[in-house]
Design a binder for these strands. Structure first.
Lengths: 208, 208
DNA sequence: TGTTGGACTGAACAATAGTTCAGTGATGCG
DNA sequence: CGCATCACTGAACTATTGTTCAGTCCAACA
């Protein structure tokens, strides 16, 4: 049990980090153990030495990723529990801002985790769902939800808006020429998202 | 150039159809040419004979899929161009209803197309975007959009709600125990979706 | 100093992948 | 009948994959 030394990462750590990037970019199956080894400057044998198999490495990378995600949902807002749409969006924005450097990689990895339909991808979804549901419940308790709003679907619809931004970002990039997470675009999305949740898209029916 | 005979599909057609199902279920890479051959009751060689390569078969399956999608967007509503959120949702509902039998396969294939980030997956996205955008423009022209609604993001957010329902349905199944496309659940989602687009989730601010 | 243990190597291995191609059988045409 | 064409076969081939393992190196410890 050697202590973690931060100065120069050993082969094991380099493997996890480069695998995280490569899996996110190209997908698990498309990355060979030789790709991983040469990108990490280690030999092929080291993967099986440390992780038993390529799948073992994947599990290690998943844990590495979950740690960041966990921190985002719990550690992110230890005291401030969001109870308005603005709070909720702010928490998520803060998380994104905190991970700005490797945000594209995180998004890409998240994408694949969700779309590959794995068990742990489901656990990610479930955890996120719990977070959104709790927020909606608090909004409800403080009278911020209309009486006819569907309490079952609203959390899912909110998740779709959030996760859709992540999952479809590659296509946004191709349609608009830049990522939906680019500063200006993201702020605009934030406002549009907020407005939709709050008031919908119809003109306010003052005349009724 | 033999005419298409409907009675008993030849090896080529059987290959495309079973490949469509298997690719949707397990993903392109996870399906071997031997799987495809035995599931279609043909020999391995036939794939390369007809399609040149496994990738050639994929292209044929993609075209097969696009044909259905195309029919959904254009053929679905030849005359009726949607210009209200209700119209829009109705067109999509009709499409889904029309493909009820193989809807799960279509959803699964769509998922994989998105995940793989292929050019044609992008063209699907783009085409759908064009459809939604046109609808939003018509809504705008007939005064159904609030003045402060973001015209750039609204179509994307609407797409996220629609596509999210498709892409995340496997998780809905695991959270709620049944598909979001089950009749009762779907109708409820339809209303919740409509309400969100129209009025948002906040209680109507009549007192203001 | 000798020895133990763990990180690390890389050639060799076995399994599996997609592809090739010589050959079969049925069909239609002259 | 002879010939050409076409869908189709399946054993053989080649490339690539993940895995194994005997062996190297080096730091820690007695």
């Amino acid at each position: 049990m050697s202590q973690a030394q931060k100065d120069s990462p050993d082969g094991r750590e380099r493997l996890v980090r480069t695998a995280f990037v490569l899996f996110a970019e190209k997908g698990f199956d498309s990355v060979t153990v030789r790709d991983l080894a040469s990108a990490s400057n280690v030999s092929v044998g080291l993967i099986n030495h440390h992780f038993g198999s390529k799948d073992g490495l994947r599990e290690a990378v998943d844990e590495f990723f979950i740690a960041q995600f966990e921190d985002a949902i719990t550690g992110a807002a230890p005291q401030q529990t969001p109870s308005t749409p603005e709070d909720y969006a702010t928490v998520i924005d803060a998380w994104i801002a905190r991970h700005e450097a490797d945000w594209p990689t995180i998004v890409a990895y998240f994408r694949r985790a969700l779309l590959e339909e794995s068990d742990w991808g489901f656990s990610l979804f479930q955890r996120f769902y719990g977070f959104v549901q709790a927020t909606v419940n608090r909004m409800d308790a403080s009278g911020q939800l209309g009486p006819d709003v569907d309490r079952l679907w609203l959390p899912f619809l909110m998740m779709y808006l959030e996760l859709g931004t992540m999952v479809f970002d590659p296509y946004i990039k191709r349609v608009l020429g830049r990522s939906g997470y680019d500063r200006e675009l993201w702020q605009r999305r934030h406002r549009a998202y907020m407005a939709l949740i709050r008031r919908g898209a119809s003109p306010s029916r003052e005349g009724l």
